[in-house]
Design a protein around this nucleic acid. Structure first.
Lengths: 236, 236
DNA sequence: CAGTGGTCTAGACCACCGA
DNA sequence: CGGTGGTCTAGACCACTGG
């Protein structure tokens, strides 16, 4: 019944959001208490509480037990950046994805790698290097080191039909990831593999995925700056 | 009381998450129904429902009214990337932030700018260019065009004491943002302002903020690749 | 102390899905 | 049809904050 057919808690959320967007409530301002909103909307407290709790989870409000709820000090744009499997991403653009495996081998971890993977120096780890193409144009070089404990059969995978990202998702359920995004020049080898000049800036994403107790893999993804950009959109 | 002192709904969440991380539940598998979990934990359905609803909101589960709950098909790592106000970010690292205004003027929008700001060509818009320093080292060049409708007093702001990001947050409450992140070479002017070589790759973030009906501003943020990287962490 | 949010309960009605 | 999730209620107890 009533208004717009939205659930009551969504209507409360919309009401508060509208006040914030319109500027009637500014960062730091107190938001009406649950009791007040309960009265105003004629709802039970649980319903109002759900609305407020969700807005807090979304980062719009800051709640403090005992003192009240205020509009969050939003000096950040927090946005969801999807770091996706390259295969799916290319397909979704309606393009053709292909890849070429350059290296697939076992190496001994040096000090730095052992550190990030949480292994002892000299432990044998898998190493793969491949190039991904979108409609035949190189858009990503993927240089990955994999913890054998997380994916023992990594070397047997047919990477013509699956990507490391896909395979690792399957055999090492993800629990945590860390990444860093930076701009850098490719190494000579990377430039050659991508078919670009060594002076072309690239977007380099270093990603470390953790599955349960193991660090499953560490990857360096190099994107030619001219051909790739990360995009995002944020609403609320 | 009991277990780990965590709220009951958090314990249910942890239980389900553990099953997923351990591999006992794989993508596509059915998760026990609310009724089953209610029995198993001796909780009311509302509490179990909260746990499951939150897990679904986090993207771990997919719920379908009538048929049940399954582990989400997860071929994506969706991670929160915070694009923050540079001033706060530097302070939080315990460093000193300063900035220098290079340009603060009114310009007529060309076709491209008018398009992104949603204005007619030739409309007067504000334009600012400034460099931000961390402990005296240039880390960001901020080139911004502002819609006068969103911030009429932009030219009067004292940018020695506030940043455009801060000011715009204040006078044009944010409702939506779009951004793109890429690697590129700086223009000659940008390189000079940042005190780097023109051949040094930079991280370039193009950000467009929307406040209510207006596109409030469009900014180009240039970070020297050697001195700055975006970092993120994702858990669950 | 009174007011706040954090959590929980034991019911309830509904829309939906699959058999 | 029975089982599922989506929503809502009217209470409740607690921990915390502020004056």
């Amino acid at each position: 019944m009533s208004s717009t057919d939205l659930p009551a808690y969504e209507q409360v959320k919309a009401f508060v959001k509208a006040q914030i967007h319109s500027g009637a409530l500014r960062p730091g301002d107190a938001v009406p208490s649950e009791a007040a909103l309960q009265q105003q909307f004629g709802l039970s407290r649980m319903t109002v509480n759900r609305a407020m709790t969700e807005l807090a989870a979304e980062g719009l409000l800051t709640r403090m037990r005992g003192s009240g709820t205020v509009v969050a000090q939003w000096h950040r744009i927090s946005s969801t950046l999807a770091v996706r499997d390259i295969h799916e991403e290319v397909l979704e653009r309606g393009h053709r994805h292909s890849s070429k495996v350059l290296t697939l081998e076992v190496v001994k971890a040096d000090a730095a790698l052992a550190q990030t993977l949480g292994l002892r120096r000299g432990t044998r780890v898998f190493h793969s290097v491949m190039v991904h193409y979108e409609n035949g144009i190189a858009i990503q070089l993927e240089d990955r080191h994999v913890n054998p404990a997380a994916a023992p059969d990594y070397l047997q995978v047919d990477f013509a039909h699956t990507t490391p990202t896909q395979y690792l998702f399957q055999c090492a359920p993800l629990s945590e990831a860390r990444y860093s995004i930076e701009a850098a020049l490719p190494t000579a080898m990377e430039a050659a593999a991508l078919g670009i000049q060594g002076s072309q800036p690239c977007l380099v994403i270093t990603r470390c995925t953790i599955s349960g107790a193991h660090v499953a893999s560490q990857g360096r993804l190099v994107y030619p700056g001219m051909r790739y950009s990360l995009q995002g959109n944020f609403q609320l």
